[in-house]
């Protein structure tokens, strides 16, 4: 209803209304392309194939970490996973330590890391469902537990090594000069689409995100779906740790921390409703690209670090305002 009237109004509101009708995932993608060429205006060296590959590679790390976050946010009821940063770090440290630079131990080490991430996710889910702890509190608390455990077990000494195979698979340019991580990301994107749009779990996930009572009265086992979602989030975060280790080839205690808030921002910029029940992973992928591009742009503009942060925050606010309008229009 309102969308029709808004087109009649001129000026900024009308323009925002127009923008608001483009699907969020596409909007973010268009924005990413525009930003890339704006970068070219600021710094002619910005626009070239190498730079493009580099940005997609950086976005891939963020995108992989944000995959689980997407599922958790879609599940609704204030769903959020603040433990992804901790899990990324834990997984990287586990693989670093278990494989100890040994290629043959890489897969078993990955298995252990994924299992650990899944387990943490299950505990998150159980706390939220069985003890009724709000997701924000539960996963924040879990972050503390993970960090404490890492400190106790390692005593602050991070020994081990990165298997050369991992670095090769993830970081080195593969076919057509595309790094392994980008291929991994694209495959993950397709799998996530399949999971969300073509499985019973995906359909039930959206259902519990919209209305848990309706879902339950339609036979959806809500607790199981919630626990599975946090478990998947934990597992995907652990996979993020695996990929990140391939890039950094070393570990430190706050390896995953800086990815936590961008992982949430990428989901939201990609058009997934923070309230749950609506969204998708292609949006998150676009969101990760946009965020990475903005960061690279600000760096290319050679602004001071403090100004970079300020501008980054302002751009985020502007983006979310546009999405907020869109939600109002659709209702």
């Amino acid at each position: 209803m309102t969308s029709q009237t808004s087109s009649g109004q001129g000026g900024v509101t009308g323009l925002l209304g127009q923008i608001g009708r483009v699907p969020p995932a596409l909007l973010a993608l268009i924005l990413a392309v525009i930003l890339f060429f704006v970068g070219g205006l600021l710094n002619p060296n910005f626009v070239n194939a190498n730079q493009a590959v580099n940005i997609v590679r950086l976005a891939a790390f963020l995108g992989i970490v944000a995959a689980g976050q997407t599922l958790v946010i879609i599940s609704g009821n204030e769903g959020i996973d603040l433990s992804v940063g901790g899990i990324v770090t834990l997984a990287a440290i586990l693989i670093y330590r278990i494989s100890d630079g040994n290629d043959t131990l890489l897969l078993p080490a990955l298995g252990v890391a994924l299992l650990a991430g899944t387990l943490i996710g299950v505990i998150n889910g159980l706390g939220i469902i069985a003890i009724n702890i709000p997701p924000l509190v539960m996963t924040l608390g879990m972050t503390g537990v993970i960090q404490g455990t890492i400190l106790v077990v390692t005593q602050g000494e991070l020994i081990g090594d990165t298997p050369p195979l991992l670095a090769q698979v993830i970081a080195a340019p593969g076919p057509l000069g595309i790094p392994g991580v980008v291929i991994v990301w694209v495959v993950l994107g397709l799998l996530m689409w399949l999971l969300l749009e073509r499985t019973t779990y995906g359909k039930q996930l959206f259902a519990i995100g919209v209305n848990r009572r309706t879902a339950r009265l339609s036979g959806v086992r809500v607790p199981q779906v919630v626990i599975a979602t946090y478990a998947l989030s934990g597992m995907l975060a652990a996979f993020g740790g695996f990929v990140l280790l391939g890039f950094t080839q070393t570990v430190f205690l706050n390896l995953g921390g800086p990815y936590l808030f961008p992982s949430i921002a990428a989901v939201v910029v990609g058009g997934t409703l923070l309230a749950g029940g609506k969204g998708g992973y292609f949006g998150t992928m676009s969101g990760a690209l946009v965020l990475t591009l903005i960061e690279s742009l600000l760096r290319a503009a050679q602004l001071q670090e403090a100004y970079q942060l300020m501008v980054f925050g302002l751009i985020l606010l502007a983006l979310l305002t546009i999405y907020g309008r869109q939600r109002n229009l659709r209702q």
Partner: peptide, 13 residues
């Protein structure tokens, strides 16, 4: 509205 339907989702779903 509150028990039978997912209002924002499609008829198919």
């Amino acid at each position: 509205g509150s028990e039978g339907l997912l209002l924002s989702r499609s008829i198919l779903e």
